[in-house]
Every structure is written in structure tokens, then in C-alpha cells.
Amino acid sequence: MSFDAEKEIAKLWAKCQAVQDENRRTFYQCREAAIQMAGDGADENAIALKAWEIKGKDVAKSYLPRIRMDKPKFVENIAKLFVNSWRNQGAVVTVEPGADENEVFIVWERCPWPTTAKQYGAPMAEDLAGCDLALQTTIADVALFSNRNLKIETTKAIPRGEGKCVRRLWLEQ
């Protein structure tokens, strides 16, 4: 039987992207269901943010077993966990060094989440606040678990039209 490697890889790649799309669509489908069930007058933004917060909490659960405080580059290693998660979701993300070992920047050159938000009619402000809340929630649990004063802040954001998302991750002394 002949084997066409290029065709196999193309098929797998297409499937991987479809899974990534489905993952985001599922999030927005559930968001919409929750808003509809909440009925008229419900605070849509608050419902959406709750979903992002739950996502952030669950992401933290998968990071905690991977934390190694006895290894160097603690902050960079945490940043790499984010990089991996977002790459799996279809984003283009890298880590860039900061002033010293206690600071890094996570740079999203491209992220598919705002596009999906648009498709489901979610405001960009919600997308930004939601993503920020997820990251803050994850970092809060990671900080609590590791007993280190780890912080994250957004300095640039695609939903604000700034071309890329940049998050500063640092250990506050």
C-alpha cells in the first residue's frame, strides 16, 4: 500500500484545527446557553466572566502537578505552561525575557479567541476581560500553591486593536 506522508499530515493538521475551533465554539455555545437560561435582565457580562474564571481555575489544576520550585527559572517555567496551553488552542505565543529572572513577557502574536467571540456576538471588552480574568485566576492559584507572590498584567491586547497581546508575568519581591 502506498503511503503519502504529505496527505496524512495535511489531514491531521486540518483535524487539529477543527478541534481547536470546536473547543472555542463550545465555550461560546455554553456561554449563550447560560445567558438564555438566566433570562431577561441577567448580567450577561457577569455570566461570561464567571465562565472564564472557571476556565482559569481548571487550567490551574492542570498546572499544579507540573510546578517545580526546586528548579531555576520559576517564572519562565510558569510562562511556558501558558504558552503550551495557548498553542494547543491555536495561538502563536512566545516567552520573552524581562529585566531579570523574576520577570518575563508572554507575547501572543496571534490568537483565535477574539475571532470566535465576534462570531458569537460577544463584545471585545468581554473577551479581553474574560481572558484576563482566566489568567489572573490561574496565577492566583499558582501563587497560592507555590507560596510566591506571582503577578500577571496585560500590557497590550489584540481585542483593543493593539496587534498583539502582551502579558507581563513577574514575581513581586
Binding site: A60, K61, L64, P65, I67, D141, L144, F145, N147
Partner: peptide
């Protein structure tokens, strides 16, 4: 103290 569980 409260701290998140490492194992689910």
C-alpha cells in the same frame, strides 16, 4: 491553610 490541591 487553604491552598489548592496538587492532585485532582
Amino acid at each position: 491553610s487553604f491552598l489548592p490541591q496538587r492532585l485532582r
